[in-house]
Design a protein around this nucleic acid. Structure first.
Lengths: 347, 347
DNA sequence: TTGTACGCGTTATCAC
DNA sequence: GTGATAACGCGTACAA
């Protein structure tokens, strides 16, 4: 491991001061064009690399954004990450990413690491069992912006980026009603999590507005994974009268549910129409193609980072907007198209 | 923004030296139990957080691993990331992740950033059009370990983590032959990329060993996305004689290809049997379920980080092992099961 | 336009 | 078991 080249070495080489070298490398306006070019040349020729730690220690800015995500290996979250990385990269920020693996303990530990790493800002989608946000208190009290996205806490003072889950669920359910469903079941996730709670609300509201009865027994609470879809389907097959519509809070679960129902001889959408949520690529693979709520993961990531950076650069208003709501949209496909004549069928 | 608490503040508070405080906080053996406890208490009480930059500046170790990945929003890569994050996190390392978006230019820029951020090591899966690895030269010459995974360069001196793509493709093709296919087409990706080049090789070898003729016209080179699968299917439908087997170099493309073939009335697997690659979740959604090569993304990520850290800790041999090959496995499903009696059908 | 001198917060080294 | 001191490499107020 050879010795690192520093601005002092460059300075010595050119018989100028380290200050000028520093300025030259940072595009400081008050530095001679020629000098600057020489500095840059010698720097690259000597294999100089800026020591970001020294720099970050000196400036109190790290150009680093922390991300805490429940899991990286989900289609939605990886789209979010992709969007975040793109914007962050373009703006010269680094991303430190960590997973909570759906547990508060890890989320707390990760928050601590992010704090110690002095991230300029933090982006969080909270874990299943996160019930309070005390572990972000250090950020709040230091004025470090924390921006929640998708899975956001109840806490009113949090800045969040979400879609209108109530409205989206409402539309999904209303669509089922339009297709003639009158006995609709909702397969939901952990109801402590805002997104699932809100989807349930939208489901209820839509039933109410259609003068359809709502009963607790028409909500199946699961963890929304593949296995859950199978179990839910079995449960539905036992129901009497059998439901004619299902609104599932995520596509993964919806797909395994559909598969199980089909195996049992249920015709989709004729016997039971099904709507999912997320618009994952699998919606276009399952037969029949699954109607779903398009949920812009990439965009959510981009907006999250962009908002954060704008705030950090002082370019937005003093405080972050309290809630940013992205558009979402019901994409109608065959799993709910009974007449073959309703709505625009997406590719 | 209040003033940050430093070890000096803690030292003053306890009337001891900063040195002792530093030691106390770092579990240095030679420090009195009581003193240590006091230090820890006062530190947390004063809201102290270690300044990692000062620390990293002083020690010449950053505990940071850089990752350069083509795209984050692919099922395979997000599984890899998940595995990497898990191991890195447990070992106290941070991950800085960036995407090349399949272009060398971004890959070069990202490498530079990683270099400036003085990552302790680098993990790379190279972009489509990366033809040489000069941009990693700075790492090599500084002795910073660079570990390539999945998409690795030709360069002999690179340390890589891969699966045996030749063998996997061989098995996939041989399986098609066993099922009675004698006119097999291979849908491949950019042949400059090792994984696709090797899969083509395995395809050829298997044909040779089965005494089946190989012709260039039975290889369709695409970019392996959804649209490519549709185009490839159309091309196949035009072929005369029509092939009875297809080996596709990735699942995404295989799925859209199957869909298109089915729409054209082709029976899978009776008319054409199809094998994919990656064992993405969609293989179990498409009908018929797709036979595919199981490709351990999570494990690859874990192994990559673990190898790197072992090396950094000096726990493995002096140099990184040149190539680590992970097991891969053909998972037989309905898309190739003609008799219904061959091989173990996966769930 | 350039240079001098200091401090950012930590840890390694040496001395006690 | 503890402390004084220097150094890591950079950016910036101030001076010239």
């Amino acid at each position: 491991m050879e010795k690192e080249v520093t601005i002092y070495d460059i300075a010595k080489e050119l018989s100028i001061s380290p200050t000028t070298v520093s300025r030259g490398l940072n595009n400081h306006p008050a530095v001679n064009k020629n000098t600057k070019q020489k500095i840059i040349d010698v720097a690259s020729q000597m294999g100089y690399r800026s020591n970001t730690f020294a720099s970050k220690l000196r400036k109190q800015r790290t150009n680093t954004i922390g991300v805490i995500v429940p899991r990286l290996d989900s289609n939605f979250q990886s789209c979010v990450m992709a969007g975040m990385e793109k914007v962050a990269n373009e703006a010269g920020y680094n991303l430190i990413i960590s997973q909570s693996l759906e547990t508060v303990q890890k989320e707390i530990a990760n928050a601590r690491t992010m704090f110690d790493n002095r991230v300029d800002g933090l982006l969080v989608s909270i874990a299943y069992d996160t019930e309070n946000i005390d572990h972000f208190e250090p950020f709040f009290s230091k004025g470090i912006p924390v921006l929640f996205y998708d899975r956001v806490p109840e806490h009113k003072k949090c800045t969040s980026i979400v879609i209108d889950n109530i409205q989206a669920a409402y539309k999904a359910t209303a669509h089922l009603v339009e297709q003639g469903c009158s006995n609709i079941v909702h397969i939901s996730g952990n109801l402590k999590v805002n997104v699932y709670k809100d989807r349930l609300k939208g489901f209820k509201y839509a039933l109410m507005d259609s003068d359809l009865p709502f009963s607790e027994s028409s909500v199946i609470t699961t963890n929304l994974n593949e296995e859950a879809g199978i179990q839910a389907a079995k449960q539905i097959l036992q129901m009497n009268p059998r439901p004619d519509g299902i609104f599932v809070a995520n596509d993964n679960c919806a797909v395994s549910c559909v598969k199980t129902l089909k195996q049992a001889g249920v015709r989709i959408p004729e016997d039971i129409a099904v709507v999912g949520f997320n618009n994952d690529p699998i919606t276009r693979v399952i037969e029949p193609n699954l109607t779903s709520v398009d949920y812009p993961g990439n965009e959510m990531g981009e907006v999250a980072v962009r908002s954060l950076i704008n705030y950090l650069d002082g370019m937005s208003d003093v405080s972050l907007t309290n809630t940013i709501t992205l558009r979402s949209e019901l994409v109608v496909r065959e799993s709910t198209t009974r007449t073959g004549a309703t709505g625009a069928v997406a590719p």
